[in-house]
Amino acid sequence: MKNILFIVTRSQNGGAQKWTKEQIEICSNDFKCFLATDRNGWLSHNVRVDDKFLNDLIYKKFSFSYLLGLNKFIKNNKIDMIVASSANAGIYSRLIKILNRKIKIIYVSHGWSSIYNGGKLAFLYTFIEKQLSKFSDSILCISKKDFENAKNIIGINEHKLKWITNKIYPIKNNEIREKQDKVIKLLTVARLESPKRVDLLIEATRDLDNVELHIIGDGSQRNYLESIKHKNVVFHGEIDGFKDFGKYDVFSLISDSEGLPLSALEAMSAKMPIILSNIGGCSELIDGNGVLVKNDVDEIKAAIAECILQNEMFSKNSIDIFNKMFNLELNKNSYIEYYKDILND
């Protein structure tokens, strides 16, 4: 049985962490799984692995001490392949490849931040991504848009690229809201950090008396967001393993940068209409089940109105699309076979 190390910079709850958790779950029957991350947290507490490497030095762009420690862990556990799901994890995994040419490296792009958030230095970051790709056996893209950007903008060799659209387990034990009142509950689940644009959702709902905005998540922007909130905004803070999508009517995620957001997939699995920024792979989630918007207050307002009007149809389409394309229970073999192909290459 081959040994796979899944590595992600932070153990806190987030999209890359949820993806890593579920990958470990589907791989556990075919591979021995290991985890490397910063410290004990949501991810490390919610996975069963053969061993863990926990070290805060992963935060640094380069720590020779961390690299040596990680390399020792890899040798001691006879790791055959690394699956890296964050920028720093991707850097260290590729450096490991230099030290050990036999080990297989998969870098998972959860959205190319070098393109979306690079600003004036985007050309430099994309150049670095292209160079790092040479030390990868495969680059896994979680959306068609990421795949196209990797090929056409970053210039990564197409033979190193693999596109498997993001898939998750459907939300279980989802409590369904009794819709007896006329108040529409709009939900967003996001880290309260840049580039998430929760501020635009707050402004878009300010004059909508029949809409409550419910915010699940926490972060450095919370104090600012609370300072601009109105009476129909409810902050719930971070909720580990949040599953109560069914208590709400419409889901929205407004952001300046996304790959293919897991929280939106979770909302779809709970039969919710969705409103997403037209960025990254978000357009791949919308097909008669919600609305794509520019990051503009008026467009978001119009999208909320459309989702209220078309709620029944959008809800049905959301679950149909999810089961067809994004249900991990029905499509997990696409990942298992991919990992086996890389290991046997």
Rank of each mutant, 00 (worst) to 15 (best):
K2S: 09
R10C: 11
Q12D: 14
W19M: 11
T20M: 01
I24G: 01
I26H: 11
I26E: 04
D30P: 01
F31W: 13
C33W: 05
C33E: 01
F34D: 10
A36M: 03
R39M: 06
N40G: 08
G41I: 01
S44H: 13
S44Y: 10
H45M: 08
N46G: 08
R48D: 11
D51T: 00
F53A: 07
N55W: 00
I58N: 04
F64G: 08
S65R: 05
Y66L: 03
L67D: 11
L68C: 12
G69T: 01
N71P: 03
K75I: 00
N76W: 00
D80K: 13
D80V: 02
I82W: 03
S85A: 14
A89C: 05
A89Q: 01
I91M: 03
Y92R: 01
K97H: 10
I98T: 06
R101A: 05
K102F: 00
I105K: 12
Y107T: 04
I115N: 07
N117W: 03
F123W: 15
L124F: 15
S136A: 11
S136G: 01
S136H: 06
S138G: 09
L140V: 02
K144H: 13
D146F: 04
N149I: 02
K151V: 02
N152C: 14
I156W: 00
N157F: 04
N157Q: 04
L161N: 04
N166V: 00
K167T: 02
Y169H: 05
I171S: 00
I171Q: 07
E175L: 05
R177P: 00
D181V: 07
L187F: 04
S194L: 11
K196P: 09
R197S: 10
V198A: 13
L200Y: 08
E203H: 10
T205D: 12
T205Y: 13
L208M: 15
N210F: 13
L213W: 12
L213T: 02
H214V: 14
I215P: 09
E226S: 14
E226K: 15
I228W: 09
N232C: 04
N232W: 11
N232R: 15
V233C: 15
G237Y: 13
I239Y: 01
D240N: 13
F242V: 05
F245L: 01
F245P: 09
Y248T: 10
Y248H: 15
V250N: 12
S255L: 12
G259V: 07
P261R: 04
L262H: 02
K271V: 07
M272N: 07
P273Q: 05
I274V: 13
S277A: 12
N278H: 15
I279A: 07
G280D: 03
I286C: 06
G288R: 09
E299N: 14
A303R: 13
I304C: 05
C307N: 06
E312C: 12
S315K: 02
S315I: 12
S318M: 03
I321R: 13
N323W: 06
K324C: 05
K324N: 12
K324L: 07
E329H: 06
E329V: 03
L330C: 11
K332W: 00
N333Y: 03
S334G: 00
I336N: 02
I336D: 09
E337C: 01
